[in-house]
Amino acid sequence: MNGILFGSQYFGAALTIGAFMVGRVLQKKTGFVLFNPILVGVAICIAVLKVFDIDYEAYNHGAQFVSYFLNIATISLAILLYEQLTVLKKNFLAIIIGISSGVLASVASVLALSIMFGFTHQEFVTMLPHSITTAMGMALSEEYEGYVSVTVAGIVITGILGNVIAVPALKLFRITDPVAKGIAIGTSSHALGTAKALEIGEVEGAMSGLSIAVAGLITVIAMAVFSGIY
Protein backbone atom coordinates (compact mmCIF):
# COMPACT_ATOMS: atom_id res chain seq x y z
CA MET A 1 0.00 0.00 0.00
CA ASN A 2 2.67 2.50 1.04
CA GLY A 3 4.71 1.47 -2.01
CA ILE A 4 2.09 2.72 -4.47
CA LEU A 5 1.16 5.73 -2.33
CA PHE A 6 4.77 6.91 -1.91
CA GLY A 7 4.98 7.31 -5.67
CA SER A 8 1.62 9.07 -5.99
CA GLN A 9 1.58 12.83 -6.44
CA TYR A 10 -2.19 12.93 -6.28
CA PHE A 11 -3.32 10.62 -3.45
CA GLY A 12 -2.56 13.07 -0.59
CA ALA A 13 -3.96 16.06 -2.47
CA ALA A 14 -7.15 14.21 -3.46
CA LEU A 15 -7.64 12.88 0.09
CA THR A 16 -7.12 16.38 1.56
CA ILE A 17 -9.53 18.15 -0.76
CA GLY A 18 -12.04 15.26 -0.61
CA ALA A 19 -11.98 15.28 3.20
CA PHE A 20 -12.45 19.06 3.16
CA MET A 21 -15.45 18.71 0.85
CA VAL A 22 -17.02 16.09 3.14
CA GLY A 23 -16.63 18.61 5.99
CA ARG A 24 -18.21 21.37 3.91
CA VAL A 25 -21.19 19.24 2.93
CA LEU A 26 -21.63 18.08 6.55
CA GLN A 27 -21.53 21.69 7.78
CA LYS A 28 -23.97 22.89 5.11
CA LYS A 29 -26.42 20.03 5.75
CA THR A 30 -26.32 20.14 9.57
CA GLY A 31 -25.19 23.70 10.38
CA PHE A 32 -23.34 22.17 13.37
CA VAL A 33 -20.44 24.41 14.43
CA LEU A 34 -18.03 21.55 15.23
CA PHE A 35 -18.37 20.26 11.65
CA ASN A 36 -15.78 22.81 10.61
CA PRO A 37 -14.44 21.74 7.17
CA ILE A 38 -10.83 22.02 8.35
CA LEU A 39 -11.48 20.10 11.59
CA VAL A 40 -13.47 17.39 9.78
CA GLY A 41 -10.88 17.32 6.98
CA VAL A 42 -8.00 16.77 9.42
CA ALA A 43 -9.98 14.10 11.32
CA ILE A 44 -10.90 12.19 8.15
CA CYS A 45 -7.32 12.31 6.81
CA ILE A 46 -5.89 11.05 10.14
CA ALA A 47 -8.55 8.30 10.30
CA VAL A 48 -7.78 7.17 6.73
CA LEU A 49 -4.00 7.13 7.42
CA LYS A 50 -4.54 5.14 10.65
CA VAL A 51 -7.07 2.62 9.27
CA PHE A 52 -5.05 1.84 6.11
CA ASP A 53 -1.70 2.13 7.93
CA ILE A 54 -0.38 4.80 5.54
CA ASP A 55 2.74 6.80 6.45
CA TYR A 56 2.45 10.58 6.83
CA GLU A 57 5.31 10.92 4.30
CA ALA A 58 3.31 8.97 1.70
CA TYR A 59 0.30 11.22 2.36
CA ASN A 60 2.32 14.43 2.39
CA HIS A 61 4.07 13.56 -0.87
CA GLY A 62 0.87 14.69 -2.56
CA ALA A 63 -0.71 16.80 0.18
CA GLN A 64 2.22 19.25 0.30
CA PHE A 65 1.13 20.58 -3.10
CA VAL A 66 -2.21 21.65 -1.62
CA SER A 67 -0.27 23.92 0.78
CA TYR A 68 2.30 24.95 -1.82
CA PHE A 69 0.82 28.45 -2.27
CA LEU A 70 0.02 29.07 1.41
CA ASN A 71 2.47 31.98 1.69
CA ILE A 72 1.24 33.82 -1.41
CA ALA A 73 -2.33 33.15 -0.31
CA THR A 74 -1.49 34.90 2.98
CA ILE A 75 0.16 37.74 1.02
CA SER A 76 -3.04 38.05 -1.06
CA LEU A 77 -4.96 38.97 2.11
CA ALA A 78 -3.44 42.44 1.56
CA ILE A 79 -6.11 43.08 -1.12
CA LEU A 80 -8.84 42.69 1.52
CA LEU A 81 -7.01 45.20 3.67
CA TYR A 82 -6.63 47.59 0.71
CA GLU A 83 -10.33 47.32 -0.17
CA GLN A 84 -11.13 48.35 3.41
CA LEU A 85 -8.67 51.24 3.42
CA THR A 86 -11.34 53.81 4.29
CA VAL A 87 -12.57 51.67 7.21
CA LEU A 88 -8.95 51.18 8.29
CA LYS A 89 -8.20 54.92 8.20
CA LYS A 90 -11.42 55.81 10.01
CA ASN A 91 -10.74 53.33 12.84
CA PHE A 92 -6.93 53.43 12.87
CA LEU A 93 -6.59 54.17 16.60
CA ALA A 94 -9.13 51.52 17.61
CA ILE A 95 -7.39 48.96 15.42
CA ILE A 96 -3.88 49.57 16.77
CA ILE A 97 -5.03 49.75 20.41
CA GLY A 98 -7.34 46.73 19.98
CA ILE A 99 -4.72 44.49 18.37
CA SER A 100 -1.99 45.52 20.84
CA SER A 101 -4.21 44.73 23.82
CA GLY A 102 -5.20 41.41 22.20
CA VAL A 103 -1.55 40.41 21.72
CA LEU A 104 -0.81 41.44 25.30
CA ALA A 105 -3.77 39.33 26.51
CA SER A 106 -2.48 36.34 24.53
CA VAL A 107 1.14 36.39 25.78
CA ALA A 108 0.15 37.35 29.35
CA SER A 109 -2.33 34.46 29.59
CA VAL A 110 0.31 32.05 28.23
CA LEU A 111 2.72 33.36 30.91
CA ALA A 112 0.15 32.93 33.71
CA LEU A 113 -0.78 29.39 32.62
CA SER A 114 2.89 28.40 32.15
CA ILE A 115 3.61 29.42 35.74
CA MET A 116 0.48 27.56 36.90
CA PHE A 117 1.37 24.36 35.00
CA GLY A 118 5.07 24.56 35.91
CA PHE A 119 6.19 24.69 32.26
CA THR A 120 9.91 24.82 31.47
CA HIS A 121 11.21 27.96 29.73
CA GLN A 122 11.32 25.93 26.51
CA GLU A 123 7.67 24.87 26.84
CA PHE A 124 6.74 28.49 27.66
CA VAL A 125 8.37 29.98 24.54
CA THR A 126 6.88 27.10 22.50
CA MET A 127 3.36 28.33 23.32
CA LEU A 128 4.04 32.11 23.32
CA PRO A 129 3.38 32.62 19.57
CA HIS A 130 0.36 30.25 19.41
CA SER A 131 -2.10 32.98 18.35
CA ILE A 132 -0.25 34.18 15.25
CA THR A 133 0.14 32.91 11.71
CA THR A 134 1.99 29.58 11.25
CA ALA A 135 4.88 30.91 9.16
CA MET A 136 5.65 33.62 11.69
CA GLY A 137 5.03 31.55 14.82
CA MET A 138 7.41 28.85 13.54
CA ALA A 139 10.14 31.42 12.92
CA LEU A 140 9.69 32.87 16.40
CA SER A 141 9.67 29.42 18.05
CA GLU A 142 12.93 28.61 16.24
CA GLU A 143 14.46 31.96 17.21
CA TYR A 144 13.71 31.33 20.90
CA GLU A 145 14.60 27.60 20.70
CA GLY A 146 11.14 26.24 21.47
CA TYR A 147 9.69 22.90 20.31
CA VAL A 148 8.91 24.02 16.76
CA SER A 149 6.69 21.04 15.90
CA VAL A 150 4.58 21.63 19.03
CA THR A 151 4.31 25.33 18.18
CA VAL A 152 2.98 24.41 14.75
CA ALA A 153 0.46 22.01 16.33
CA GLY A 154 -0.53 24.65 18.90
CA ILE A 155 -1.02 27.26 16.18
CA VAL A 156 -3.17 24.91 14.08
CA ILE A 157 -5.26 23.91 17.12
CA THR A 158 -5.63 27.56 18.16
CA GLY A 159 -6.69 28.43 14.61
CA ILE A 160 -9.26 25.62 14.50
CA LEU A 161 -10.46 26.63 17.98
CA GLY A 162 -10.79 30.26 16.93
CA ASN A 163 -12.54 29.23 13.73
CA VAL A 164 -15.02 27.09 15.73
CA ILE A 165 -15.62 29.22 18.86
CA ALA A 166 -15.30 32.75 17.40
CA VAL A 167 -18.98 33.22 16.54
CA PRO A 168 -20.43 31.92 19.86
CA ALA A 169 -17.69 33.68 21.88
CA LEU A 170 -18.35 37.04 20.20
CA LYS A 171 -22.06 36.61 20.86
CA LEU A 172 -21.43 35.69 24.52
CA PHE A 173 -19.15 38.70 25.08
CA ARG A 174 -21.62 40.98 23.22
CA ILE A 175 -19.03 42.08 20.67
CA THR A 176 -21.23 43.31 17.82
CA ASP A 177 -19.14 45.92 15.99
CA PRO A 178 -17.85 44.44 12.67
CA VAL A 179 -14.37 46.00 13.10
CA ALA A 180 -14.09 44.71 16.69
CA LYS A 181 -15.25 41.24 15.57
CA GLY A 182 -12.62 41.04 12.83
CA ILE A 183 -9.84 42.27 15.10
CA ALA A 184 -10.80 39.83 17.86
CA ILE A 185 -10.78 36.90 15.40
CA GLY A 186 -7.59 37.80 13.50
CA THR A 187 -5.62 38.64 16.66
CA SER A 188 -6.63 35.42 18.43
CA SER A 189 -6.60 32.88 15.60
CA HIS A 190 -4.70 34.14 12.53
CA ALA A 191 -5.56 32.89 9.02
CA LEU A 192 -7.70 29.96 10.21
CA GLY A 193 -9.92 32.36 12.14
CA THR A 194 -9.86 34.75 9.19
CA ALA A 195 -11.48 32.03 7.07
CA LYS A 196 -14.44 32.27 9.48
CA ALA A 197 -14.30 36.08 9.58
CA LEU A 198 -14.58 36.10 5.77
CA GLU A 199 -17.77 34.03 6.07
CA ILE A 200 -19.27 36.55 8.51
CA GLY A 201 -18.64 39.59 6.31
CA GLU A 202 -16.21 41.59 4.21
CA VAL A 203 -15.32 44.16 6.91
CA GLU A 204 -14.78 41.34 9.44
CA GLY A 205 -12.62 39.44 6.94
CA ALA A 206 -10.52 42.47 6.06
CA MET A 207 -9.98 43.48 9.69
CA SER A 208 -9.12 39.89 10.58
CA GLY A 209 -6.67 39.68 7.67
CA LEU A 210 -5.10 42.96 8.73
CA SER A 211 -4.84 41.71 12.32
CA ILE A 212 -2.78 38.68 11.19
CA ALA A 213 0.00 40.96 9.95
CA VAL A 214 -0.18 43.54 12.73
CA ALA A 215 -0.62 40.99 15.55
CA GLY A 216 2.33 39.01 14.18
CA LEU A 217 4.59 42.05 14.18
CA ILE A 218 3.49 43.16 17.66
CA THR A 219 4.08 39.59 18.91
CA VAL A 220 7.72 39.83 17.73
CA ILE A 221 8.14 42.72 20.18
CA ALA A 222 5.97 41.11 22.90
CA MET A 223 8.02 37.89 22.77
CA ALA A 224 11.27 39.81 23.14
CA VAL A 225 9.89 41.26 26.39
CA PHE A 226 7.96 38.25 27.76
CA SER A 227 10.54 35.53 27.00
CA GLY A 228 12.83 37.21 29.55
CA ILE A 229 10.22 37.12 32.32
CA TYR A 230 9.86 33.35 32.82
Binding site: N91, L93, A94, I95, I97, G98, I99, S101, G102, V103, L104, A105, S106, S109, V110, L113, S114, F117, F119, M127, H130, S131, V150, A153, G154, I157, T158, L161, G162, I165, A166, A169, L170, F173, I175, T176, D177, V179, A180, K181, I183, A184, I185, T187, S188, S189, S211
Partner: peptide
Protein backbone atom coordinates in the same frame (compact mmCIF):
# COMPACT_ATOMS: atom_id res chain seq x y z
CA UNK B 1 -1.64 21.41 29.26
CA UNK B 2 -0.95 22.69 25.75
CA UNK B 3 -4.64 22.36 24.93
CA UNK B 4 -5.63 24.23 28.10
CA UNK B 5 -3.26 27.07 27.13
CA UNK B 6 -4.77 27.22 23.64
CA UNK B 7 -8.38 27.27 24.88
CA UNK B 8 -8.00 29.76 27.76
CA UNK B 9 -5.63 32.08 25.90
CA UNK B 10 -7.75 32.12 22.73
CA UNK B 11 -11.01 32.91 24.56
CA UNK B 12 -9.23 35.59 26.65
CA UNK B 13 -7.65 37.14 23.54
CA UNK B 14 -11.00 37.30 21.71
CA UNK B 15 -12.55 38.93 24.78
CA UNK B 16 -9.83 41.55 25.34
CA UNK B 17 -9.17 42.44 21.67
CA UNK B 18 -12.91 42.61 20.90
CA UNK B 19 -13.93 44.60 23.96
CA UNK B 20 -11.05 47.10 23.81
CA UNK B 21 -11.62 47.73 20.10
CA UNK B 22 -15.37 48.15 20.62
CA UNK B 23 -14.88 50.55 23.54
CA UNK B 24 -12.42 52.72 21.59
CA UNK B 25 -14.81 52.85 18.59
Amino acid sequence: FYLAVCVVSTVFTILVAGWVTQIVI
